[in-house]
């Protein structure tokens, strides 16, 4: 499969189908978070990221800072042909490289994550490395809105602005939920774009389920000398009615009946 063809294979619907299938097989949760980012991941792996091969040193980097949604990333890697269906089926099995959180030993995963607040700092360093090497590669990061609770995220945000890391592109998965409740009830951060703007970033808001709009926003950001952040309005559990905006689906696995219903709903989209 050519790179162009494999990109076309990455759609939000296919990412969701993989997420549901492997979650059910492994009987593991974090489904709502993975569904929330499915379209951003599809936009990235379906077109934005310049990756000819996962081991190309000049490839764009991607840091899934909200590592608990790794299944959506594995789905994209599988759809691109960098991960076999057999490998994907090892998700959460013993001796598998595909755990709940992504590990850099898995080809296609650039940085290990899982501890929230860690990804943006590594990504900023990666962007600085690209610039110091005279490379045109770019670094994309996906953070959760609740991850903005972490002070380290803002340390990295200040650093990136200070150094004008315009090769750094951050998506905030703004689904309004975190592990134990709604962000508005825990640490409200509904003006994230404004806050990043105040930190010296090129900050935009967009619909995190509109793949063409995501691509257009990244293209539009090129040329701005600041680091870029796209605060993406997303829906937790998007595509599955009984998971939508329900806290329980942060951790909960599906029953067989729930799986069938979820797959049917995704197939109808």
């Amino acid at each position: 499969m050519s790179t162009a063809d494999s990109r076309l294979a990455v759609t939000g619907r296919r990412v969701r189908e993989h997420v549901l299938r492997e979650s059910r097989r492994a009987n593991v949760g974090h489904i709502g978070s993975a569904l929330s980012i499915a379209d951003i991941v599809a936009a990235l792996y379906g077109g934005i990221l310049r990756i000819e091969a996962p081991d190309d040193p000049e490839r764009d980097r991607f840091v899934l800072s909200k590592g608990h949604a790794a299944l959506a990333l594995y789905a994209a890697l599988a759809l691109r042909g960098w991960l076999s269906e057999d490998q994907l089926a090892t998700y959460c099995g013993d001796d598998s490289l595909l755990g709940v959180h992504p590990e850099a030993d898995l080809p296609g995963v650039d940085f290990s994550t899982g501890s929230l607040g860690h990804g943006l700092a590594m990504a900023a360093g990666s962007a600085l490395a690209a610039r110091k090497s005279g490379s045109s590669r770019r670094v994309f990061v996906l953070v959760s809105d609740a991850e903005l609770n972490e002070g380290s995220t803002w340390e990295a945000a200040m650093f990136a602005a200070q150094h004008g890391l315009s090769n750094l592109y951050v998506f905030v998965d703004s689904n309004g939920q975190q592990a134990l409740g709604f962000t508005r009830d825990i640490i409200a951060i509904e003006n994230a774009a404004e806050r990043f703007g105040a930190f010296g970033w090129d900050a935009r808001e967009l619909d995190g389920h509109d793949v063409p709009a995501i691509r257009a926003a990244v293209e539009d950001a090129v040329g701005d000398p600041r680091p870029h952040v796209f605060v993406a309005r997303t829906v937790f559990g998007r595509g599955v009615s009984f998971m939508t905006s329900r806290i329980k689906w942060h951790y909960w696995p599906m029953s067989a009946d729930e799986f069938d219903q979820a797959m049917n709903e995704i197939a109808a989209t």
């Binding site: 700092a121 590594m122 900023a124 360093g125 990666s126 490395a129 690209a130 380290s152 990295a156």
Partner: peptide, 13 residues
């Protein structure tokens, strides 16, 4: 901690 995160990204590069 940001310094260590930045360094991790630099070392990967």
């Amino acid at each position: 901690q940001n310094m260590v995160g930045i360094a991790t990204g630099l070392a990967e590069g």
